[in-house]
Amino acid sequence: MQGKSLGILLALGILSGCAGYGHHQSMHDGQGGMMSGHQQMGEGGMMGSVYFRQGLLVAQGGRTLYRFDRDQAGSGASACNGDCAVKWPPYLAAPGASAQGPLGLATRADGSKQWTFQGWPLYFWQGDQKAGDMNGDNIGGVWHVIRP
Score class of each variant (00 low, 15 high):
84 C>W: 10
139 I>S: 14
47 M>P: 09
124 F>D: 12
76 G>P: 14
24 H>C: 06
41 M>G: 12
115 W>G: 14
95 P>I: 06
58 V>P: 14
59 A>V: 10
10 L>N: 07
98 S>P: 13
101 G>K: 15
23 H>T: 10
120 W>P: 04
88 W>K: 10
6 L>F: 11
105 L>F: 05
30 G>T: 02
9 L>S: 05
122 L>S: 11
59 A>N: 01
19 A>N: 15
2 Q>T: 15
129 Q>I: 12
57 L>S: 07
146 I>D: 00
1 M>R: 15
92 L>I: 08
67 R>G: 09
139 I>R: 02
9 L>G: 15
145 V>L: 06
60 Q>P: 08
30 G>S: 15
88 W>C: 03
112 S>R: 10
70 R>M: 09
35 M>Y: 03
55 G>R: 04
141 G>M: 13
145 V>W: 07
61 G>V: 10
56 L>H: 11
71 D>P: 02
66 Y>I: 01
26 S>W: 03
62 G>T: 04
7 G>E: 00
68 F>Y: 04
36 S>Y: 04
93 A>F: 02
100 Q>D: 05
47 M>H: 03
116 T>Y: 03
109 A>W: 02
42 G>P: 02
129 Q>W: 06
17 G>W: 09
123 Y>M: 09
50 V>P: 02
37 G>S: 14
43 E>R: 07
70 R>V: 08
85 A>V: 02
16 S>Q: 14
61 G>I: 04
148 P>G: 03
8 I>V: 06
2 Q>H: 14
119 G>F: 00
138 N>E: 08
66 Y>L: 06
119 G>V: 02
128 D>L: 05
22 G>C: 01
20 G>M: 11
5 S>P: 15
73 A>N: 12
95 P>H: 09
56 L>I: 05
29 D>V: 00
10 L>Q: 01
104 G>R: 13
84 C>N: 04
86 V>H: 12
62 G>H: 02
15 L>H: 14
20 G>S: 08
19 A>L: 11
2 Q>L: 15
19 A>V: 08
129 Q>A: 13
61 G>Y: 10
7 G>F: 00
84 C>F: 06
89 P>H: 08
12 L>G: 01
49 S>N: 09
36 S>R: 09
40 Q>S: 11
20 G>Y: 01
92 L>R: 00
120 W>A: 06
103 L>R: 15
89 P>Q: 09
116 T>G: 02
47 M>S: 05
57 L>H: 12
121 P>T: 13
12 L>E: 00
92 L>H: 14
144 H>I: 01
134 M>F: 08
21 Y>A: 08
137 D>P: 05
79 A>S: 07
95 P>D: 13
90 P>D: 04
94 A>I: 06
46 M>D: 07
112 S>H: 01
128 D>H: 06
39 Q>H: 11
1 M>Y: 06
144 H>T: 02
83 D>W: 05
126 Q>W: 04
110 D>L: 14
42 G>D: 10
41 M>L: 10
134 M>P: 06
56 L>C: 10
46 M>W: 09
143 W>V: 09
131 A>R: 03
111 G>I: 05
35 M>E: 03
92 L>D: 12
65 L>C: 06
5 S>R: 13
43 E>S: 15
106 A>L: 04
